[in-house]
Design a protein around this nucleic acid. Structure first.
Length: 414
RNA sequence: CGGGAACUGGCUCAAUUGGCUAGAGCACUCGGUUUGGGACCGAGAGGUUCCGGGUUCGAGUCCCGGGUUCCCGACCA
């Protein structure tokens, strides 16, 4: 992509009000644009990152047998009345049509996925089963805050599993937990496994929390085995469920995932039953498992940045390479840069090409630092004189001259 | 939902006690210069000062009501 034509622009000044690191950097670097409190547009840069995050999650969900579906954001009021959550869920967005019909905007999808299973799950032979979606969710938060960290409209991956027995549910719960750990590692934000409150329909749940100084949650981490406990259920006498120790450290963290055993809570409301081997009708056991990709984008920025800007992990960076041509209208430089750009594209390398002839070198470097693409390739009359380009790593700051005929090898394995 | 702060071109900010045609930097357009760490000169375009009332000869500024945003807290399937 040529930067001169890109629908995105950096700003020299940070947004006035937004203090949180992720909001400031993502807006200043041109990844997102805030429309309302907790509601964002994703510009090309931000949308690329979000899609990278979601694709990693998608790959891992497929790997554990999840079948991808898409359920509606707009949902029937009756389904929410059936579970009592039309009245009890305080963050539920309710909308009224011009014909006075009422609907819910989905904050989560148990009310849709459970009745969806009726007629499609009827025998023990149909189970176990897992379906998931990646979709925009709505929650009427009393206070949206901290950029992408708590939005009123946000992205969520929600997986739902269906089982015949508690043992099988527990088995799959573990499979998902391991998958989640893998996902957060791939995203560059290793997460703690945290015992947490089960809310209104499970005895307990597990959260995935990323340790970060600006985290909104407080968790206690076992110094021996690293199993953590959310402050909301932590007590001084608490011994570690895993290793039995009582040695904890306190830390701040941001929740990026949450998994629950719903058991029969929803299947009973919607009469989701199956016929067992002996011919009897039994309620289907369910689990639900959430990850918030948009919040993850915020957490990644909170975790990976410096004074100059964002430092994207390779796995989610909007581009693999930031190609920068210096020298204004120098024909030799732009010719070489164009050639390298085409070669990189032909090799399937995702490259953002700063082809702006009017911008100064300093401006291009500052923009590049802000945007945070991991690999910078600089081409100028200086490097051309050496028959080379300069390669600079955004994270380490290490630079090296690489001969023009070798630069492709650096990225061709991408 | 309680408390605090803020709201003026796309962005960041000025504007004396209530007083002239609401200014500047960034960004943008045109011309020129410049090109290895946010360059410079000249010209230009861009405004419902959040909205609605009120006071006044006169309101960005004062008063009343509303809205929005941010921060703290509460909340957080």
């Amino acid at each position: 992509m040529k930067q001169s034509q890109y629908f995105s622009r950096t700003s020299k000044t940070a947004p006035k009000d937004d203090v949180s690191v992720n909001a400031r950097l993502l807006e200043q670097a041109g990844f997102v644009h805030k429309e309302m409190a907790g509601v964002y547009s994703y510009l090309p840069l931000g949308w690329r990152v979000l899609q990278k995050i979601e694709n990693i999650i998608r790959e891992e969900m497929n790997a554990i047998g999840g079948q991808e579906i898409l359920m509606p954001a707009m949902q029937p009021k009756e389904n929410w009345q059936a579970t009592g959550r039309w009245d009890s869920l305080d963050v539920l967005f309710k909308i009224k049509s011009q014909h006075d019909n009422e609907y819910a905007l989905g904050p989560t999808h148990e009310e849709i996925v459970t009745p969806l299973g009726v007629g499609r799950i009827s025998s023990y032979r149909d189970l176990p089963l897992a379906v998931y979606q990646i979709q925009t969710k709505f929650r009427d938060e009393a206070r949206a805050k901290s950029g992408l960290m708590r939005g009123r409209e946000f992205r969520m991956k929600d997986l739902y599993s269906f089982h015949t027995t508690e043992e099988d549910l527990a088995r799959y719960y573990k499979v998902v937990a391991e998958s989640y750990t893998k996902i957060f590692n791939r995203l560059g934000i290793p997460a703690l496994y945290v015992e947490a409150d089960g809310g209104t329909f499970a005895k307990y749940s597990h959260e995935f929390q990323v340790e970060t100084p600006n985290g909104e949650d407080v968790v206690y981490v076992c110094n021996k085995c690293q199993l953590a406990v959310n402050k909301e259920i932590f007590s001084d006498e608490k011994t570690c469920t895993d290793c039995g120790e009582k040695d904890y450290r306190e830390t701040k963290a941001s929740e990026v995932g949450n998994i629950f055993e719903l058991k029969t809570k929803f299947s009973e409301s919607f009469k989701l039953t199956y016929t067992d081997e002996d011919g009897s009708q039994k309620p289907v056991l369910m689990g639900c498992y959430g990850i918030g990709p948009s919040r993850i984008m915020g957490v990644i920025v909170e975790e990976h940045h410096d004074e100059a800007g964002i430092i994207w992990p390779e796995s989610v960076s909007p581009f693999a390479v930031h190609l920068i041509a210096l020298g204004g209208k120098d024909a030799e430089v732009s010719e070489q840069a164009e050639k390298l750009y085409s070669n990189l594209l032909a090799a399937g390398v995702e490259v953002l090409y700063d082809d702006r002839t009017e911008a100064s070198a300093g401006q291009k470097f500052a923009d590049s630092d802000l945007i945070g693409i991991p690999n910078r390739v600089i081409i100028s009359s200086k490097t051309i004189a050496e028959n080379s380009v300069e390669l600079k790593n955004r994270a380490s700051g290490d630079t090296s001259l690489v001969p023009l005929n070798q630069i492709m090898e650096k990225f061709s394995n991408a």
